[in-house]
C-alpha cells in the first residue's frame, strides 16, 4: 500500500523532505497575506495570535504524533482535555475548593488516568482497532464531563492564570512573545531528542513500521503503546490547562473537534495514520504554517468555515500531490526505457 510513497523518480531535490516543503509554504503564505494586509498581518500580530492557533492544539498534536508514529490513533484527546478541565474547574470551584495548583495537579492526573485506560484497552484487546476504542472512550470521557458539569460553565480562575499565562508575554529582542508560546516551544527540543535520537524513540518508529517484526526483535511494543497513550493523555490535559487560561471558563463542550485538528497537524507535519513515519520538526513547522494560514484567512474573511476549508484542502493536497508526482515520475521513466528499447 505504501509502496507508492517510495520516491522512484527525483522530486526537485530539497522539496523531497516534508520539512522543507512546509518551510517553503510558510514563506509563501506569509508573503501572500503580508502583501494583502500589510498593516495587520505582521510577525508581531502572528506572535500575538499564536496563543489561539498554536498552543492548545499544539500540545495535543505533540501527544498525537507519538501515537501516530506507533501506527495507532487516539480520537479521545479532546474529550480528555474537556474532562481534565472540568475536574480542575470543579475542584477549584472559583477559589472555594482545593488550592489552585492542587486542582491543576488533579487535572494532569485525570489526563494520565484517561490515557492509561486507553492504553490498557488498546494493549489488552489487540483485536480492536485503537480508533474504535478511543471512539468509545471519547463519548465516555466527555459524557463524564457532562455529568459533572451538566450544561453549566465553571471558571473564575486566579488572575495570574487567566491573565499572565493566558495573555501575558515576555519581551525578547524587542518583540512581545506570548508566555504560552514559550511554553510550547520549550517542549520541542526535548521532544525532538526523545523521538529522533533515543533508543525508545527509534523503537517507536520500528513498532509503527512493522509491529510483528519489532516484537520478534525484542521491542516491548505493548509498553511503548502504553507510554504513547499515557503521554498523549497527559499532553491533552496540558492542552486543557492552556485552553482554560485562554478562555477563562470551562463548559463540557470545551475543545470539541480539536482531536481532528491535532491529527491534521501531525499528518501535515509528515506523520501517517499507517504508522512508522513522523517528524517533530515537521510538526512544529506544520503548526507554524497553520497559524500563519489561519490568522491570514481570519483577518481576510473573519470566518471559521473558510479556514476549515483551506485546512482540509491543504491536508489532502500535501499527501496527494507527492503521490501523483511519484506516479508521474515512474510513468515517465518507463516511457523513456521503452523509447530506448524501440531505438535499439
Amino acid at each position: 500500500m505504501t509502496g507508492a510513497q517510495k520516491p522512484t523518480g527525483r522530486i526537485p531535490g530539497f522539496l523531497r523532505r516534508r520539512e522543507w516543503l512546509l518551510a517553503v509554504l510558510i514563506v509563501i503564505v506569509y508573503f501572500v497575506f503580508n502583501s494583502q494586509l500589510p498593516e495587520s498581518y505582521t510577525v508581531v500580530n502572528l506572535l500575538n495570535q499564536s496563543r489561539v492557533y498554536m498552543v492548545d492544539v499544539g500540545f495535543m498534536a505533540v501527544g498525537m504524533l507519538m501515537v501516530l508514529i506507533l501506527g495507532d490513533i487516539d480520537i479521545s484527546v479532546a474529550s480528555i482535555a474537556a474532562l481534565a478541565s472540568t475536574v480542575m474547574a470543579v475542584t477549584y470551584n472559583a477559589g472555594q475548593g482545593l488550592p489552585f495548583l492542587v486542582s491543576v495537579g488533579l487535572m494532569l492526573l485525570v489526563g494520565l488516568v484517561c490515557g492509561l485506560i486507553n492504553g490498557l484497552l488498546v494493549t489488552r484487546f489487540h483485536e480492536l482497532f485503537p480508533m474504535i476504542i478511543t471512539l468509545a472512550t471519547q463519548t465516555l470521557y466527555r459524557g463524564i464531563a457532562y455529568i459533572i458539569l451538566k450544561d453549566q460553565s465553571a471558571g473564575s480562575f486566579p488572575s495570574w492564570f487567566s491573565k499572565d499565562l493566558g495573555y501575558g508575554s515576555v519581551r525578547i529582542l524587542g518583540v512581545e512573545v506570548p508566555l504560552m508560546l514559550i511554553c510550547i516551544l520549550a517542549v520541542f527540543p526535548l521532544y525532538y531528542l526523545w523521538i529522533h535520537r533515543t533508543a525508545p524513540g527509534r523503537r517507536m518508529f520500528a513498532a509503527g513500521t512493522n509491529i510483528t517484526a519489532s516484537r520478534y526483535s525484542g521491542v516491548r511494543t505493548d509498553r511503548l503503546k502504553m507510554t504513547a497513550f499515557v503521554f498523549n493523555g497527559v499532553m491533552a490535559a496540558v492542552a486543557g490547562i492552556f485552553l482554560c487560561s485562554r478562555t477563562g471558563s470551562v463548559k463540557y463542550t470545551i475543545a470539541a473537534g480539536f482531536e481532528m485538528q491535532a491529527i491534521a497537524v501531525a499528518i501535515l507535519g509528515g506523520a501517517s495514520t499507517s504508522g512508522g513515519r513522523g517528524s517533530v520538526v515537521g510538526l512544529l513547522l506544520a503548526l507554524v504554517l497553520m497559524t500563519a494560514l489561519k490568522n491570514g484567512l481570519m483577518l481576510l474573511y473573519n470566518d471559521a468555515f473558510i479556514l476549515n476549508l483551506s485546512i482540509g484542502l491543504m491536508l489532502i493536497l500535501i499527501v496527494l500531490v507527492p503521490n501523483l508526482w511519484n506516479m508521474y515520475r515512474s510513468m515517465r521513466t518507463l516511457r523513456r526505457q521503452r523509447l530506448a528499447i524501440s531505438k535499439s
Partner: peptide, 24 residues
Amino acid sequence: PEDRQKQGLLLPWSIQHNITLLRL
C-alpha cells in the same frame, strides 16, 4: 522467524538500522 518479510525485517528501513535494532 519463518516469515522474514513480516516477522524478521522492517522492509523500508536501511540494512544498518535493521541490524542495530536489537541492541540499540
